[in-house]
Amino acid sequence: MTQLKDNTPLGKVIVITSGKGGVGKTTSAAAISAGLAKRGYRTVVIDFDVGLRNLDMIMGCERRVVFDFINVIQGDARLKQALIKDKRVETLSILPTSQTRDKDALTKEGVEEVLKELKKDYDYIVCDSPAGIERGAQLAMYYADEAVVVTNPEVSSVRDSDRVLGLLASKTQRAESGEEPVKAQVLLTRHDQARIDKGEMMTVEDVLELLAVPLLGIVPESTAVLRASNVGMPVVLDAPSNAAAAYEDAVARLVGEDVPLKVGQEKRPGLISRLFGRSA
């Protein structure tokens, strides 16, 4: 499945962002980059959350970090020294961030330099944005060609996504230079069909109508996500699950395939397990 593409790298920069924290940015960044790499695309995923490094944990490479993104920006290490090659998928690399520095260590010029360098070798450069709309988040989106806005069907997440979509349309290099705007798509996560059926959760259509951008995919609320993070596996590399299938579909759409939307769902607990009060 993993074969190196010999042609010149695509050099596409994709930011995974959301505004709100805890909606699944890092999970999605890990799953999408692993999904792209599985398809043979040379992929690197960068952690922009300086000071709160977590991508390394989700990717399961936390004990292999020697140099980081900030070391490279400040000239203390070369890019090749900081990049960690994934042990499961040949075409995947991880650029971890610093756990001890703060967001001021990121500079626009430094980020631009690193991205320029990576574009020479990689098809996809996935930027895992920190939560919020401060410096770290703004730099993560600034050089993006495309954006995946991770959203939960919940009021504060939708509101924050709307805000972030506004920033993508105004505070990016593409916006400032008058180029074609950043292509933004919504990835709806923690989707729960059972709760939607009961009228407790906004539907996909509701969220899309509010945000008015295309949908990249629907990831169901799934126990597989926590399980995968427990063991440091991107969801798509872990045991098959609805969430993994949803991410695979999203990745297929991201690379331009026409995949029909499916609403995956966790199996509902049977009568017996419900009676005995077992919950996931």
């Binding site: 509101r159 709307d162 805000r163 979509l165 506004g166 349309a169 105004s170 705007p181 008015a212």
Partner: peptide, 8 residues
């Protein structure tokens, strides 16, 4: 209310 540029 919280209009974002380029939106409706």
């Amino acid at each position: 209310h919280e209009s974002r540029s380029g939106s409706k």
